[in-house]
Design a protein around this nucleic acid. Sequence first.
RNA 1: GGCGCCGUGGCCAAGUGGUAAGGCGGCAGACUGCAAAUCUGCUAUUCGUCAGUUCGAUUCUGACCGGCGCCUCCA
Length: 470
Amino acid sequence: MTTFRLYNTLTRAVEEFAPADGETVRMYTCGPTVYKPAHLGNFRTFLFEDLLRRVVVLRGWQTLQVMNLTDVDDKIISGASEAGVTIGEITAPVVKKFHEDRAFLRIQDAEIYPSATDHIPEMVALVKTLVDRGLAYRAEDGSVYFAIGKLHGYGKLSRLDTREVKTGARVIQDDYSKENAQDFALWKAAKEEDEKTGAAWDSPWGRGRPGWHLECSAMAMRYLGETMDIHCGGIDLIFPHHEDEIAQSEGATGAPFARFWCHGEFLLTDGSKMAKRIGNVATVADLKEQGVSAAAFRHFVFSTHYRKQLNLSGEALEASLEGVRRIGDFAARLEAARGATPALETIAAEAEKEVVEALSDDLNAPAALGSLYTFIRRANAELDRGGQDRAAVEAARKTFARINSVLDVIPEEAGPDPELAAWVEEKLAARRAARAARDFARADALRGEIEARGISIEDGPHGTRWKKIR
RNA sequence: GGCGCCGUGGCCAAGUGGUAAGGCGGCAGACUGCAAAUCUGCUAUUCGUCAGUUCGAUUCUGACCGGCGCCUCCA
């Protein structure tokens, strides 16, 4: 088997990857801020991470994935304050919804989903270390800031040294107590609103709450150690979020925070970034409303490489819908097959090799899908030929299962509905009789009745198959 | 203004210094009573434009055009 390669934002190059301990891939994937339900743009990133996770398993490694839930931040606090409730009352239903949506999209469970509010002691300890090491200071406003000027190499992930601050940009900070405009908050002094909504904790610097970046550093190191294998997130997190995580973590430990940094590109709507502030967001609920299955959405997401922008369009979604229909039909056909030509075994072996190679090449899912389709077309042709080779069918089944263990793109079966099934069987029997009597007008009328209820039928050499299509 | 990504057939999309995977759609054929499904063939002499390097460039370099993103709390 060839090596597994991943693009590393830190080096801006595709590099060979293997877990540091040779067995378990320790990865941290930046999770949602649980203020409002995550949108499809967020889920594109989570789907990219799901792909990574599944390919890691395909390569024979174990995973230890941590995905944080940011349950304390400005928006949550102001939302809670306006509603007159605690932050927990705002976040709890959103967390629940997140897991439901995630399950719908078949995003596998991470091993750990830590919440920021459950890890305040770890965060306080981290800030204390940074203050002790002279990298952070308590300002007059009671907040603690990280002094980026004190850390050698700050900006290495986003290549800050090669950047210039926008002319006329907001260099004048809202916070005059900072020593340097670009210093960022580790610990924010509590305001009345924070106390009121349960978003304030004790610390050596007084009541307050953690800054955004702090939770990720503290929780990542708590569960994954000082140096993890892979840290993932959306491309917009490179700066400042991940840059600041590196500063805090490496400033505290002196060890590299993550060996690989991997970032997924955006999902666009109407040509621009999908974002709440732009107001062009779509959610899992919208997918369901439009009849887009989880399989189809996964197919859609995987049809473009994760480091390329992807535009959400009805046409592309339609194509994916039709694509997974074909993949699902093929899976069912393979399941029902009793034999095939021996050539199918070779075809399967070639496909499996190609798919593993594509996925190992920086998660090239679009190429993997291409190979999957070639496999399906060639295998269908062999199946059309008939044949008695059971081992060949078994090999094809195994190959398909292995490929699908990563992509997971078979549309869900329409649930068993005994009443509907009995009705269809009855109609089919009548149609069979009509066809035997060569009364095709009657047969076609019966087919029309069946199709009117969203059932498609296929006449084959071994009888008629039917399935629910909507 | 700085930094970065992208531009491949009607739509989506992979890809390589040696002459364009795959999917959707469309057209034709096989199969079928007719369909559906499946299979077969066809659907880019060409990869934003213009130069350059090279025996040869879609693939490397430069310029330009077009789209998108980041530049302090957005996946």
